[in-house]
Design a protein around this nucleic acid. Structure first.
Lengths: 113, 113
DNA sequence: TCCAGTTGTTCAATGTTACTGAACAATGGA
DNA sequence: TCCATTGTTCAGTAACATTGAACAACTGGA
């Protein structure tokens, strides 16, 4: 199996991040990872909420998030533990990513009321 | 000719904004509009920088930016005057859009050095 | 050690979306 | 009125995303 590619900070681009977050499924995954207090498997999203996607699709989405530099994935046995690279990105990109997350969460809260 | 549709603040979504900015051409247009001190025509981007796109393509990109709520377009005679809705968006979405613009401009400056 | 179960990836076929040239609409000035 | 200019629409094509099926990698138990 191919090794997991993670771009270095220098290789991460604003454009790449925006593209990765342009898909509803991916922002949602990213937002959940950002809120979680520990790393999460890909399969945690398999039958999660109203998200019902085949695992091949999920695998692609995780790959795109990873290769954009948004998340870090580590193999632990047969599973993949995913977590955000929020701290690193803050250094490189400033408040952009946090701003997106806040706006996204805020919108989700608004719609609940 | 169909009237220009501009979403109200309530209709604007984080997802819509992210999608609109996920294309390199569109972020670039948006960033230039944000820096400009007056409204700009669509055709200002026709043979601008290393951007060489047919006008039908540009027209689509402006439509997507407009219908996501990022820009406002007003017909002035035969031309379209485009400007950002940055102030409005700040109220609704907080620092997200400004954060994106800053990261984008910052990256452009870094690469010049 | 072998097997079954679990997790994630790859691939190719199909479905969806974007790009573009050509024709068109709308406006203004000569 | 006629022409030049600006932007839009449309339909054909190209590029990209989704997905089921087959596969790979690892684990634990018999």
């Amino acid at each position: 199996m191919r090794p997991l590619y993670h771009p270095s900070l220098k290789e991460i681009t604003v454009q790449g991040i925006l593209y990765a977050l342009s898909d509803p499924v991916r922002v949602r995954i990213y937002a959940e990872l950002a809120q979680a207090d520990c790393a999460m498997n890909c399969s945690a999203f398999l039958s999660h909420g109203n998200l019902k996607l085949p695992k091949s699709t999920l695998s692609q989405h995780f790959k795109i998030l990873r290769e954009a530099g948004l998340i870090r994935s580590e193999r632990k046995g047969v599973e993949l533990k995913n977590s955000t690279r929020c701290q690193e990105l803050k250094k490189k990109l400033g408040p952009m990513v946090v701003g997106i997350l806040q706006a996204y969460q805020n919108e989700a809260n608004e719609s609940k009321r």
